[in-house]
Protein backbone atom coordinates (compact mmCIF):
# COMPACT_ATOMS: atom_id res chain seq x y z
CA UNK A 1 0.00 0.00 0.00
CA UNK A 2 1.30 3.48 -0.84
CA UNK A 3 2.32 5.46 2.17
CA UNK A 4 -0.06 8.37 2.75
CA UNK A 5 1.28 11.89 2.71
CA UNK A 6 1.15 13.86 5.95
CA UNK A 7 -1.89 15.72 4.62
CA UNK A 8 -3.68 12.47 3.77
CA UNK A 9 -2.84 11.01 7.16
CA UNK A 10 -4.24 14.03 8.95
CA UNK A 11 -7.44 14.06 6.87
CA UNK A 12 -8.01 10.36 7.58
CA UNK A 13 -7.27 10.71 11.28
CA UNK A 14 -9.63 13.64 11.51
CA UNK A 15 -12.37 11.66 9.79
CA UNK A 16 -11.71 8.80 12.21
CA UNK A 17 -12.01 11.03 15.26
CA UNK A 18 -14.82 13.31 14.15
CA UNK A 19 -16.90 11.03 11.94
CA UNK A 20 -16.10 7.57 13.28
CA UNK A 21 -14.42 6.46 10.05
CA UNK A 22 -12.41 3.26 10.71
CA UNK A 23 -10.21 3.63 7.66
CA UNK A 24 -7.54 5.31 9.78
CA UNK A 25 -6.98 2.17 11.85
CA UNK A 26 -4.56 1.09 9.13
CA UNK A 27 -2.41 4.13 9.89
CA UNK A 28 -1.92 3.15 13.50
CA UNK A 29 0.84 0.85 14.69
CA UNK A 30 -0.19 -2.14 16.79
CA UNK A 31 0.18 -0.97 20.39
CA UNK A 32 2.16 -2.99 22.92
CA UNK A 33 -1.00 -3.55 24.93
CA UNK A 34 -4.72 -3.25 24.19
CA UNK A 35 -5.75 -2.55 20.60
CA UNK A 36 -5.66 0.05 17.85
CA UNK A 37 -9.41 0.43 18.33
CA UNK A 38 -8.96 1.13 22.04
CA UNK A 39 -6.32 3.74 21.34
CA UNK A 40 -8.33 5.47 18.62
CA UNK A 41 -11.38 5.40 20.89
CA UNK A 42 -9.51 7.56 23.39
CA UNK A 43 -9.25 10.35 20.81
CA UNK A 44 -12.82 9.84 19.60
CA UNK A 45 -14.23 9.97 23.10
CA UNK A 46 -12.06 12.90 24.16
CA UNK A 47 -13.24 14.91 21.14
CA UNK A 48 -16.90 14.59 22.07
CA UNK A 49 -16.38 14.88 25.81
CA UNK A 50 -14.30 18.03 25.45
CA UNK A 51 -16.81 19.80 23.21
CA UNK A 52 -19.72 18.66 25.38
CA UNK A 53 -17.93 20.03 28.44
CA UNK A 54 -17.51 23.40 26.72
CA UNK A 55 -21.26 23.52 26.02
CA UNK A 56 -22.10 22.51 29.61
CA UNK A 57 -19.91 25.33 30.92
CA UNK A 58 -21.29 27.91 28.51
CA UNK A 59 -24.95 26.90 28.94
CA UNK A 60 -25.26 25.68 32.51
CA UNK A 61 -28.75 27.17 32.80
CA UNK A 62 -29.94 25.48 29.60
CA UNK A 63 -28.50 22.26 31.00
CA UNK A 64 -30.29 22.73 34.32
CA UNK A 65 -33.54 23.58 32.58
CA UNK A 66 -33.45 20.62 30.17
CA UNK A 67 -31.89 18.01 32.44
CA UNK A 68 -28.96 15.76 31.56
CA UNK A 69 -30.54 13.58 28.87
CA UNK A 70 -32.11 16.36 26.82
CA UNK A 71 -29.08 18.61 27.08
CA UNK A 72 -26.75 15.79 26.08
CA UNK A 73 -28.92 15.06 23.04
CA UNK A 74 -28.92 18.73 22.03
CA UNK A 75 -25.16 18.98 22.60
CA UNK A 76 -24.47 15.84 20.57
CA UNK A 77 -26.58 17.15 17.70
CA UNK A 78 -24.75 20.48 17.76
CA UNK A 79 -21.32 18.83 17.88
CA UNK A 80 -22.32 16.70 14.88
CA UNK A 81 -23.83 19.56 12.86
CA UNK A 82 -21.44 22.38 13.77
CA UNK A 83 -17.90 21.09 14.27
CA UNK A 84 -15.55 23.64 15.73
CA UNK A 85 -13.84 25.88 13.24
CA UNK A 86 -12.26 28.23 15.75
CA UNK A 87 -8.82 27.88 17.31
CA UNK A 88 -10.34 29.24 20.51
CA UNK A 89 -12.76 27.00 22.40
CA UNK A 90 -14.33 30.19 23.78
CA UNK A 91 -16.15 30.59 20.46
CA UNK A 92 -17.14 26.99 19.74
CA UNK A 93 -20.70 27.63 20.98
CA UNK A 94 -21.22 30.71 18.83
CA UNK A 95 -23.86 28.99 16.70
CA UNK A 96 -25.46 27.01 19.54
CA UNK A 97 -28.34 29.42 20.33
CA UNK A 98 -29.36 29.66 16.67
CA UNK A 99 -29.01 25.88 16.30
CA UNK A 100 -31.25 25.24 19.30
CA UNK A 101 -33.78 27.73 17.98
CA UNK A 102 -33.91 26.27 14.48
CA UNK A 103 -33.44 22.52 14.86
CA UNK A 104 -36.11 19.93 15.59
CA UNK A 105 -37.17 18.82 18.11
CA UNK A 106 -35.80 21.70 20.18
CA UNK A 107 -37.27 24.36 17.90
CA UNK A 108 -40.70 23.34 19.13
CA UNK A 109 -39.70 24.90 22.45
CA UNK A 110 -38.45 28.42 21.67
CA UNK A 111 -37.50 28.97 25.29
CA UNK A 112 -34.45 26.71 24.76
CA UNK A 113 -33.01 28.92 22.03
CA UNK A 114 -33.95 32.05 23.98
CA UNK A 115 -32.26 30.83 27.15
CA UNK A 116 -29.16 29.86 25.16
CA UNK A 117 -29.12 33.26 23.43
CA UNK A 118 -29.36 35.02 26.79
CA UNK A 119 -26.49 33.00 28.24
CA UNK A 120 -24.39 33.59 25.15
CA UNK A 121 -25.06 37.33 25.32
CA UNK A 122 -23.94 37.30 28.96
CA UNK A 123 -20.76 35.47 27.96
CA UNK A 124 -20.18 38.09 25.29
CA UNK A 125 -20.73 40.94 27.75
CA UNK A 126 -18.37 39.33 30.27
CA UNK A 127 -15.28 39.64 28.08
CA UNK A 128 -16.34 42.42 25.70
CA UNK A 129 -13.84 45.19 25.03
CA UNK A 130 -13.19 47.64 27.84
CA UNK A 131 -14.32 51.23 27.57
CA UNK A 132 -14.32 53.75 30.38
CA UNK A 133 -17.87 54.61 31.39
CA UNK A 134 -19.23 58.16 31.32
CA UNK A 135 -20.44 59.72 34.58
CA UNK A 136 -23.30 61.98 35.57
CA UNK A 137 -20.65 64.74 35.83
CA UNK A 138 -19.98 64.30 32.12
CA UNK A 139 -23.69 64.77 31.54
CA UNK A 140 -23.84 67.83 33.78
CA UNK A 141 -20.91 69.39 31.93
CA UNK A 142 -22.93 69.65 28.71
CA UNK A 143 -24.29 73.14 27.85
CA UNK A 144 -28.05 72.99 28.56
CA UNK A 145 -28.85 74.54 25.21
CA UNK A 146 -27.27 71.56 23.45
CA UNK A 147 -29.13 68.91 25.44
CA UNK A 148 -31.59 68.10 22.65
CA UNK A 149 -28.67 67.31 20.29
CA UNK A 150 -27.07 64.91 22.74
CA UNK A 151 -26.11 61.48 21.31
CA UNK A 152 -24.83 58.54 23.37
CA UNK A 153 -22.19 55.94 22.67
CA UNK A 154 -22.63 52.72 24.60
CA UNK A 155 -19.94 50.45 26.02
CA UNK A 156 -19.18 47.39 23.86
CA UNK A 157 -20.76 45.03 26.41
CA UNK A 158 -24.29 46.43 25.98
CA UNK A 159 -26.72 44.11 24.20
CA UNK A 160 -30.47 44.29 23.80
CA UNK A 161 -32.36 41.02 23.32
CA UNK A 162 -36.06 40.45 22.83
CA UNK A 163 -36.79 36.81 23.57
CA UNK A 164 -40.33 35.75 22.81
CA UNK A 165 -40.47 33.66 25.95
CA UNK A 166 -39.92 34.02 29.68
CA UNK A 167 -36.29 32.84 29.33
CA UNK A 168 -35.02 35.69 31.53
CA UNK A 169 -37.39 34.73 34.37
CA UNK A 170 -36.26 31.11 34.05
CA UNK A 171 -32.61 32.16 34.19
CA UNK A 172 -33.24 34.32 37.26
CA UNK A 173 -34.91 31.43 39.08
CA UNK A 174 -32.11 29.02 38.18
CA UNK A 175 -29.47 31.54 39.30
CA UNK A 176 -31.17 31.69 42.69
CA UNK A 177 -31.51 27.90 42.95
CA UNK A 178 -35.26 28.20 42.74
CA UNK A 179 -37.61 26.04 40.71
CA UNK A 180 -37.97 27.85 37.38
CA UNK A 181 -41.42 28.75 36.11
CA UNK A 182 -42.89 26.74 33.26
CA UNK A 183 -41.87 28.01 29.86
CA UNK A 184 -44.29 30.54 28.48
CA UNK A 185 -44.59 32.49 25.24
CA UNK A 186 -44.85 36.24 25.57
CA UNK A 187 -46.75 37.72 22.61
CA UNK A 188 -44.84 41.01 22.74
CA UNK A 189 -41.55 39.50 23.79
CA UNK A 190 -39.61 40.42 26.88
CA UNK A 191 -36.96 43.02 26.10
CA UNK A 192 -33.86 42.16 28.09
CA UNK A 193 -30.80 44.32 28.57
CA UNK A 194 -27.40 42.61 28.94
CA UNK A 195 -24.30 44.55 29.94
CA UNK A 196 -21.22 44.43 32.14
CA UNK A 197 -20.58 46.49 35.23
CA UNK A 198 -17.83 46.00 37.83
CA UNK A 199 -16.49 43.08 35.74
CA UNK A 200 -19.77 41.18 36.12
CA UNK A 201 -22.13 40.41 33.25
CA UNK A 202 -25.66 41.48 34.19
CA UNK A 203 -29.15 41.48 32.74
CA UNK A 204 -32.51 42.98 33.52
CA UNK A 205 -35.89 43.07 31.81
CA UNK A 206 -36.96 46.40 30.31
CA UNK A 207 -40.40 47.93 30.07
CA UNK A 208 -41.46 48.50 26.44
CA UNK A 209 -40.80 52.25 26.52
CA UNK A 210 -37.26 51.94 27.87
CA UNK A 211 -36.53 49.08 25.45
CA UNK A 212 -37.68 51.13 22.47
CA UNK A 213 -35.73 54.20 23.57
CA UNK A 214 -32.58 52.22 24.30
CA UNK A 215 -32.71 50.59 20.86
CA UNK A 216 -33.09 54.02 19.27
CA UNK A 217 -30.35 55.54 21.42
CA UNK A 218 -28.02 52.68 20.45
CA UNK A 219 -28.85 53.48 16.82
CA UNK A 220 -27.56 57.02 17.38
CA UNK A 221 -30.82 58.97 17.80
CA UNK A 222 -30.46 62.28 19.63
CA UNK A 223 -32.00 63.08 23.01
CA UNK A 224 -34.47 65.37 21.25
CA UNK A 225 -35.63 62.59 18.92
CA UNK A 226 -35.91 60.18 21.85
CA UNK A 227 -38.14 62.71 23.61
CA UNK A 228 -40.38 62.95 20.53
CA UNK A 229 -40.64 59.15 20.43
CA UNK A 230 -41.44 59.00 24.13
CA UNK A 231 -44.14 61.61 23.61
CA UNK A 232 -45.85 59.26 21.18
CA UNK A 233 -45.61 56.29 23.56
CA UNK A 234 -47.21 57.97 26.62
CA UNK A 235 -47.98 61.29 28.28
CA UNK A 236 -46.25 63.94 26.11
CA UNK A 237 -46.02 66.29 29.09
CA UNK A 238 -43.58 64.02 30.93
CA UNK A 239 -41.68 62.70 27.89
CA UNK A 240 -38.47 64.69 28.47
CA UNK A 241 -38.13 63.85 32.17
CA UNK A 242 -38.89 60.19 31.42
CA UNK A 243 -36.14 60.03 28.79
CA UNK A 244 -33.78 61.91 31.11
CA UNK A 245 -34.53 59.36 33.83
CA UNK A 246 -33.66 56.42 31.54
CA UNK A 247 -30.52 58.20 30.44
CA UNK A 248 -29.38 58.76 34.03
CA UNK A 249 -30.06 55.09 34.76
CA UNK A 250 -27.96 53.98 31.76
CA UNK A 251 -25.11 56.23 32.85
CA UNK A 252 -25.30 55.08 36.48
CA UNK A 253 -25.29 51.45 35.28
CA UNK A 254 -21.98 52.00 33.49
CA UNK A 255 -23.53 51.41 30.06
CA UNK A 256 -22.62 54.74 28.46
CA UNK A 257 -19.14 55.31 27.12
CA UNK A 258 -19.47 58.77 25.68
CA UNK A 259 -21.84 61.72 25.31
CA UNK A 260 -21.66 64.05 22.34
CA UNK A 261 -23.70 66.93 21.02
CA UNK A 262 -24.40 68.14 17.52
CA UNK A 263 -22.68 66.47 14.61
CA UNK A 264 -19.58 65.42 16.55
CA UNK A 265 -19.15 61.73 17.31
CA UNK A 266 -19.66 60.78 20.96
CA UNK A 267 -16.35 61.25 22.72
CA UNK A 268 -15.03 58.50 24.95
CA UNK A 269 -15.40 59.27 28.61
CA UNK A 270 -12.50 60.15 30.85
Amino acid sequence: MTRPTLAELQARMQAAIKDGDDDALALIAAPPHNSREDRLATYRNAYRLRLAAILRDDFDAVHAFLGDAQFEALSAAYIEACPSSTPNARWFADRFPAFAAATAPWNAHPVIGDLAALQWALAGAFDAADREAASLQDLAALPPERAMDMVLAFTPSVRLLTPGTNAAAILSALRQDETPPDAASLPNGCATLVWRADLQARYRPLEPEEAMLLAEAMAGRSFGLLCEMAAMMADPGTAAPRVAGYLRGWIESGMVAGIATGSEAPAPAG
Binding site: Q10, Q14, L51, S84, F92
Partner: peptide, 24 residues
Protein backbone atom coordinates in the same frame (compact mmCIF):
# COMPACT_ATOMS: atom_id res chain seq x y z
CA UNK B 1 -1.80 19.23 14.93
CA UNK B 2 -5.32 20.17 16.04
CA UNK B 3 -7.25 19.80 12.80
CA UNK B 4 -7.31 20.31 9.04
CA UNK B 5 -9.74 21.65 6.42
CA UNK B 6 -11.13 24.35 8.66
CA UNK B 7 -11.98 22.04 11.57
CA UNK B 8 -10.49 22.27 15.03
CA UNK B 9 -10.69 19.08 17.06
CA UNK B 10 -9.42 20.87 20.18
CA UNK B 11 -7.00 18.05 20.84
CA UNK B 12 -3.23 17.72 20.63
CA UNK B 13 -2.85 15.06 17.96
CA UNK B 14 0.52 13.40 17.45
CA UNK B 15 2.53 13.54 14.26
CA UNK B 16 4.11 10.61 12.47
CA UNK B 17 7.84 10.66 13.13
CA UNK B 18 8.88 10.88 9.50
CA UNK B 19 11.31 13.04 7.54
CA UNK B 20 8.34 14.55 5.72
CA UNK B 21 6.72 15.63 9.00
CA UNK B 22 10.06 16.87 10.34
CA UNK B 23 10.61 19.07 7.29
CA UNK B 24 7.07 20.37 7.52
Amino acid sequence: WTGVHGVNLHDLLPVPYTEEALDH
